[in-house]
Write a protein that binds this DNA or RNA. Structure first.
Lengths: 92, 92
DNA sequence: TTCATTTGTCGCCGAACGCCGACATTGCTA
DNA sequence: TAGCAATGTCGGCGTTCGGCGACAAATGAA
């Protein structure tokens, strides 16, 4: 999922929390934060502290990845047919 | 690149900024933030505001993605050789 | 080296943080 | 419908934010 705003992160946190059957108080305890803070962040609080947000993603096992290569993450289907001629090749 | 701490994000921001030949003051102006703030964030300030960090990534065209599927983002190099037999195939 | 650019760090300010207790609202089940 | 758990929101508190000006420490070119 692509993330551009605090609301995106909040939505991802809420989804992951519900998938793991936690209420906000339980997640808050795991992260070491107040219950109300979880509520605000899930609703897209843009001024939340970066470190606490990262800790929350960690507590939910939500991986976060950053980088230039968004285009190369989608593999184009080539307009050519390919056939296997050998299975002895080594990796480059 | 996998992100778990504020230092990871700071490093990614610094790398992207240098790749685009911007100094901290120029990036700060783009983001709408003080020059010193860029300096602190690049050094891993964990209490920076989430919204400003996201705005910074945006200004640098650094995509951020969140979600379970990290494994399928890496494509394995197959241990087989491939050869083109036709160039008339159409996309599915 | 000298000089200019860039970056890191300090203190001061107003504003907002996150915590807590309390209460209103929502949602679900009996 | 009533009742309970979960969630949203308020005010007050102490702490820290980010902006700013200023200066020291890197970094690089002449």
């Amino acid at each position: 999922m692509q993330v551009r705003t605090a609301k995106d992160i909040g939505a991802a946190i809420r989804d992951a929390r519900k998938k793991r059957d936690l209420d906000q108080a339980e997640l808050a305890a795991k992260v070491g934060v107040g219950r109300q803070w979880i509520s605000e962040v899930e609703n897209g609080k843009p001024r939340a502290e970066l470190g606490l947000v990262l800790k929350t993603l960690d507590a939910l096992d939500l991986p976060l990845s950053i980088g230039e290569s968004l285009a190369s993450q989608t593999v184009e289907t080539p307009d050519i047919d390919l056939v296997i001629t050998s299975a002895t090749g080594a990796k480059p």
